[in-house]
Amino acid sequence: MNYGPIIFLGVFLTIASSWIGLVLIPQVQFGRQQEVKIEETGEIYPTVRPGLAQQGMEIYKANGCIYCHSQQVRPEGYGADIARNWGQRRTVSRDYLHDNPVMLGTMRTGPDLSNIGVRQTSVLWHLQHLYNPQITSKGSIMPPFRFLFEKRKAGDKPSPDALALPKEFAPEPGSEIVPKPEARALVQYLLSLKANAPLPEAR
């Protein structure tokens, strides 16, 4: 007997089923989710990222931060995400409405970053950390992103853009380290990562 057509039919139906179940139905169920007004503050959530932070997201994408950092907080009682202060609440689908791509991540070589803009607000800290993680986090295995900075000849006095560095990380006298626009944009993106609005569905 010629099973060819039966196999093709079966093969077609099986993949069609999961395509409907795991792609189409989710799209129908929450693909058109909208912003909401937060009762406590009267603000609309989530908001679109400002331009510079959006550019920073491109730097995040390009340099594969996603391979070491997740952006999702698991619920209370499942893992220690909340106990580790990675968020005050779990993240929910609405938090990601304006993310494209959505970078949930699958790896936590480093901490979750959903709320890094809440946890660490210092631009200087982020710049130093990106320049060389050992400055702020001794023993870290995060790679340094020195290529997001440039070394310049220093004038008589340090320029306002120059990055303040501890002695052992500072360049030789007469030169200074200045963050490139990419580094500044990336920090703005990190500061924009806040999934802490009190959404009703996340309580």
């Binding site: 390009a62 340099n63 594969g64 931060c65 996603i66 391979y67 070491c68 070589t109 993680p133 870290s140 295995i141 995060m142 790679p143 340094p144 992103f145 020195r146 290529f147």
Partner: peptide, 22 residues
């Protein structure tokens, strides 16, 4: 190698961990 020795080849943007891995 980069994962345990993050300074290895760190200053070449196109060989940063997050690009070599993918």
């Amino acid at each position: 190698w980069k994962m345990h020795s993050p300074d290895f080849l760190a200053d070449i943007p196109w060989l940063t961990f997050g690009r070599v891995r993918p």
